[in-house]
Design a protein around this nucleic acid. Structure first.
Length: 105
DNA sequence: GGTGTGACGCAGG
DNA sequence: CCCTGCGCCACAC
């Protein structure tokens, strides 16, 4: 069984609010929606994240899933997302500068 | 009930 | 920087 429709909606709608150049971690999203955990958020993104800015959802340490690092780099360059080692083969978002929360614009 | 599995998180070594 | 181990939530077997 896939996650409930409401849960999927609450997660995706939150992801859609993340401004360009900013990111949220799986755990932060889970805390904000108040249901499930980081792994549930990850499951939602894996199944239904294709329609949103999935590259703005990263791990708490700023890294991304290996399969997405390559495709995300171009988006990061365009949006000017703060990164560490932008030119390295393993790009890493500077989570401390790029982290975003709904109430903090 | 028990076990395994994840687009995870965090503390240790 | 690397690798482990354990906690975590929900689900499938």
């Amino acid at each position: 069984m896939p996650p409930s429709e409401e849960y999927v909606e609450s997660v995706l709608s939150l992801v859609e609010q993340i401004p360009p150049g900013r990111v949220m971690s799986y755990g932060a999203i889970a805390d904000w929606v108040g249901r499930g955990g980081p792994r549930q958020v990850g499951a939602v993104m894996a199944l239904y994240g294709g329609g949103v800015a999935w590259w703005r959802v990263v791990r708490a340490d700023g890294t991304l899933p290996d399969s997405h690092t390559g495709r995300a780099r171009e988006a990061y360059l365009e949006e000017g997302t703060p990164m560490r080692g932008a030119l390295a083969d393993r790009p890493r978002v500077d989570i401390r500068r790029a982290a975003w929360f709904p109430d903090a614009s």
